[in-house]
Computed example of a mutant assay.
Amino acid sequence: MKLVLAIARAGSLGGGAAALAVNHSTAFRRLNALEDKLGVRLFERLPGGVYQPTAAGERVASTAERVETEADALSRDVSGQDQRLVGSLRVTSSETLAYSVLTAELARFRTAHPGIVVDLVVDNRILSLSRREADIALRVTRPKEPDLFGRKLADIGWTLYGAPSLVGDGPVDLAAFDFVGWGEDASGIAAADWINERIARTRVVYRASSLINQFTAAKAGIGLVLLPCYLGDPEPGLCRVIDEPIAELARELWIVTHTDLRKTARVRAFFSIVGDGLIAKSSLMRGERLA
């Protein structure tokens, strides 16, 4: 059932195999064996490696999803009653947050609770807390799902940065500068859209899907870059090109967990230590100029 659900979600055998951390040939053998045993075809094999569920496949996948949901709910319910400050805690965070301000707070948490092992998943995607892809998420969006519990930690400011040797001391004409930006398929990312709307395409001379790589490229003098202030301001190899945070790029940082886990001792301890630590850095996060 897990195999059929994984393939149905991914839309391909390779994607389903990757989700289950097995190789392609193993998933292929298991699916063929399952179809032989049931005497029914579960997927139509379409051109381009697409696997489309048949009516039987949809029935199996739907049942598997219900079983998964019940199993995850049971797991959260049992975990939510755990009042021990030992065990593991799976946390997900963006790349830039993990690179900069988060690590020091994780060190403080480790000192306070050495019996808790933090498993940090650095991923810019929004992982599912309902499916236990993570226990706690640090997100730049307010949680909308009714089964999630969150706490706002800070506002996040963004502005434009460049290497001092590139920017100089005089007035800045953005049309005269090269830029570091996102890949061509990055529509929907606010920073990428801001660049696309205001900067000529020919002036974006370097593109990367990683904001940390963009940050590094800007320090090397390749071009100007949009960054969250908590990443750009502490870096001596960069200076602000636009003095104030850009209003339309403002975001919020939230710490989020599933409601079933909010009273777990490990989760409460993380909210308290790491959450309060990030709140204490809210001036840096907002992009306030410090003396």
Rank of each mutant, 00 (worst) to 15 (best):
Y161H: 14
T103K: 03
D173N: 12
T69Q: 14
V101P: 12
V140G: 10
A98Y: 07
R142D: 15
P146S: 02
E145Y: 08
V91G: 00
V50L: 07
I116N: 01
E70T: 02
V86A: 11
V67T: 09
R131T: 13
S62V: 07
E58P: 01
Q81W: 07
L127E: 07
R84I: 05
A134V: 03
S79T: 08
G150D: 08
R151T: 02
V121M: 06
V86W: 14
R59L: 14
E68Y: 11
V172L: 03
V91F: 04
D82F: 09
A112K: 15
T111Y: 13
G80I: 03
R125G: 03
L89S: 00
L129H: 11
E145T: 09
N124H: 10
F109S: 00
S100V: 00
S165K: 05
A73C: 06
V50C: 03
D72Y: 13
V167E: 05
D123L: 00
L102D: 02
S100F: 00
L74Q: 14
L120Q: 06
S79G: 10
A71D: 13
V172Y: 12
T141K: 09
K152C: 09
G162M: 14
A107S: 05
T96D: 12
G168S: 04
P146K: 02
V172H: 05
L120D: 07
A71L: 13
G57T: 09
R132E: 03
R84P: 05
S130W: 06
E68A: 03
Y161N: 07
T96R: 11
P114E: 12
L106P: 10
G87T: 08
L160Q: 11
E58G: 01
E70W: 08
L174Q: 05
I126C: 08
G87L: 06
G87N: 13
T63D: 08
D72S: 11
E95F: 10
I126H: 13
R76V: 04
T92Y: 02
A55V: 13
L85C: 03
A56Y: 07
D123F: 04
E133L: 03
T159Q: 08
S130F: 09
V50S: 04
I116M: 01
E105V: 09
T54C: 07
G157F: 09
A107I: 07
D173V: 02
R76D: 09
P114G: 13
R139Y: 08
L153R: 00
L138I: 00
A134E: 05
V60S: 04
S128C: 01
A73F: 10
T141L: 14
E65I: 06
R132G: 00
E70F: 09
